[in-house]
């Protein structure tokens, strides 16, 4: 069983924080990732910065800009992963990227696997364009995480079931990434629909900001992704964000893990 599958087999919802690699520096990102792991993260999503992130809201756009301004390249993100593994980090790592920076790496799947990544989520690579990606990742032993959305009907969910592994990342509402105050209604039913169709655990993301929201989502989902709320802490504190980031992640992890099921 791979690290990601183990993370979803603990009999409790998984807490999945996201940070952008290289924001504000790769050294800082390494410290952030270790703090997230210590706070109880079950899987960590590490963003690969891209110049034109069409699916991201302002918070993550600015994080990518800061990371690029610091000179972060996809190859450097892989070095960050390798360094974390060399330092003993055991938490599963998913690279969250757009396709173009991965293509620039060349044989990105074996390289990501060799660095110690466990899975790839490519935001602008839907299943129908993912033939080569699927084969390359499967051969390298990487999980392929795909997005599902409220607009994904039965046909699309069936297609989703035919590819991918690990878990499905359910985009809980229309729109780009970013913290929101109100959670969508009917989420439990939507998650069930995706879980049955895909036959895999379903993590919910896009818009979860507070421990209360995280607990509410954890009550119906197999995992809870929190991104923008954590990225905002980094935006506010820069390289000194390790402590406040760890504190928020600890509260979020407790809320997710302790959610009544």
């Amino acid at each position: 069983m791979g690290r990601i599958a183990q993370a979803f087999a603990r009999g409790r919802p998984a807490f999945i924080p996201f940070v952008m690699a290289g924001d504000p520096s790769l050294e800082a990102s390494a410290a952030f990732v270790r703090a997230l792991a210590a706070a109880g993260a079950d899987v960590i999503e590490l963003g690969v910065p891209f110049s034109d992130p069409i699916a991201d809201g302002p918070t993550n756009q600015r994080a990518a800009e800061r990371a690029l301004a610091a000179g972060t390249t996809p190859a450097a993100v892989l070095e960050l992963v390798a360094g974390l593994r060399a330092g003993g980090l055991e938490t599963p790592l998913v690279l969250f990227s757009y396709l173009n920076p991965l293509l620039a790496l060349g044989d990105y799947a074996p390289r990501a696997a060799a660095a110690g990544a466990d899975g790839l989520l490519v935001v602008d690579l839907p299943p129908e364009e993912a033939l080569e990606h699927e084969a390359a990742c499967a051969e390298a032993g990487l999980d392929r995480i795909y997005l599902a959305a409220p607009s994904s009907g039965p046909e699309r969910l069936a297609r989703l079931a035919a590819v991918g592994s690990g878990f499905v990342y359910y985009v809980s509402r229309y729109g780009v990434t970013g913290a929101r105050k109100v959670l969508p209604s009917g989420l439990g039913e939507q998650v069930r629909r995706v879980r049955v169709a895909a036959g895999r655990p379903v993590a919910v993301g896009f818009g979860i900001a507070t421990p209360e929201q995280a607990a509410a989502v954890a009550a119906v989902a197999d995992g809870v992704v929190v991104g923008s709320a954590l990225v905002e802490v980094i935006a506010a504190h820069g390289a000194a964000a390790t402590a406040p980031l760890g504190a928020l992640a600890t509260r979020l992890a407790r809320a997710v893990h302790g959610a009544p099921r």
């Binding site: 699916a55 602008d124 839907p126 997005l147 607009s151 994904s152 729109g175």
Partner: peptide, 11 residues
Amino acid sequence: GRYAPETLVAP
């Protein structure tokens, strides 16, 4: 091709 986020594929 159609390299779009899943949210846009159905539309």
